[in-house]
């Protein structure tokens, strides 16, 4: 019953987020602030992880190619497929559930504990629109983060493959271009949008409806990471089944 209640309150929250709107000039400022906090501040960690994981994918592929009949271009091909289809959209989103999700939950949860949300409500402000809507809009820019991650992942793979002595640059690039299906990019970015919505709303729900004090803010942040990750994995499965299995 509790899960049903939670699911219900999540959808009620989504409806209220798009209810009475905050003054446009204030909302615009909030959106820019959220873009800075959620998108720009995440670029460093995303770039770092993408670059090195891309490199590791290339090395792992190269080290597992024991059959001389397999062309070297497979390293570029495998790096591209791994990074574009799964690593950048899905696993970066899981990492973002930890970084951005915890930040959203703890900031909204702290506002709940210190009555700042009550203060907004007493002033006649739709606190859900004020707090959550700018985060949803800011995370519409999340696909740009993923595009950067894709580029750096593949670049890291090229660098590790070529300068690690596993393949030539020509073979790697040939692998990158081999059997490229543009629809895969559509699939990757579509699911990125879905994950962005999950990243903005699930942690907000965890923070907004939390009860208790500072300790509970910490627990809510942990729950936020767990549930955001679970939903991203489930959504990933469903979207993959729907878009790629035909």
């Amino acid at each position: 019953m509790k899960y049903l209640h939670d699911i219900g309150s999540y959808f009620v929250m989504i409806k209220k987020v798009f209810g009475s709107f905050t003054k446009r000039s204030v909302l615009r400022e909030l959106i820019f602030k959220e873009i800075d906090d959620l998108i720009i501040d995440s670029l460093g960690i995303v770039a770092f992880i993408s670059f090195f994981v891309g490199g590791v994918v290339a090395i792992q592929t190269a080290l597992n190619m024991t059959n001389p009949l397999i062309p070297e271009s497979l390293i570029g091909f495998a790096t591209r497929q791994s990074v574009i289809l799964e690593f950048s959209p899905t696993f970066i989103s899981i990492i973002m559930a930890g970084k951005v999700g915890s930040f959203i939950t703890s900031s909204i949860g702290s506002m709940r504990v210190t009555e700042q949300i009550d203060a907004l409500e007493v002033m006649g402000i739709n606190s859900l629109n004020y707090l959550v809507f700018p985060k949803i809009v800011a995370l519409l820019f999340y696909p740009f983060v993923i595009a950067i991650s894709m580029f750096l992942g593949i670049f890291g793979g090229w660098l590790a493959g070529v300068y690690g002595g596993f393949t030539s640059s020509t073979a790697f690039i040939e692998g990158l271009q081999d059997s490229f299906i543009p629809y895969h990019l559509f699939y990757a970015f579509l699911k990125t949008f879905v994950f962005a919505f999950i990243l903005a709303t699930v942690p907000s729900w965890q923070g907004y409806y939390m009860k208790g004090g500072a300790l509970e803010v910490g627990k809510a942040s942990t729950n936020s990471f767990v549930w955001t990750s679970v939903l991203i994995i489930l959504a990933n499965y469903v979207i993959t089944q729907l878009l790629l299995s035909s």
Binding site: T114, E115, Q116, M123
Partner: peptide, 30 residues
């Protein structure tokens, strides 16, 4: 509620804003 002012037990000032922005907040909104 625009005609209501509220003093909360803990103050409920917005942590992310300085004092000037906190006090100006209702004016900016309404």
């Amino acid at each position: 509620r625009e005609d209501i002012g509220m003093l909360f037990q803990g103050g409920a000032l917005f942590d992310s804003m300085n004092i000037e922005e906190n006090v100006m907040f209702p004016l900016r909104m309404f």
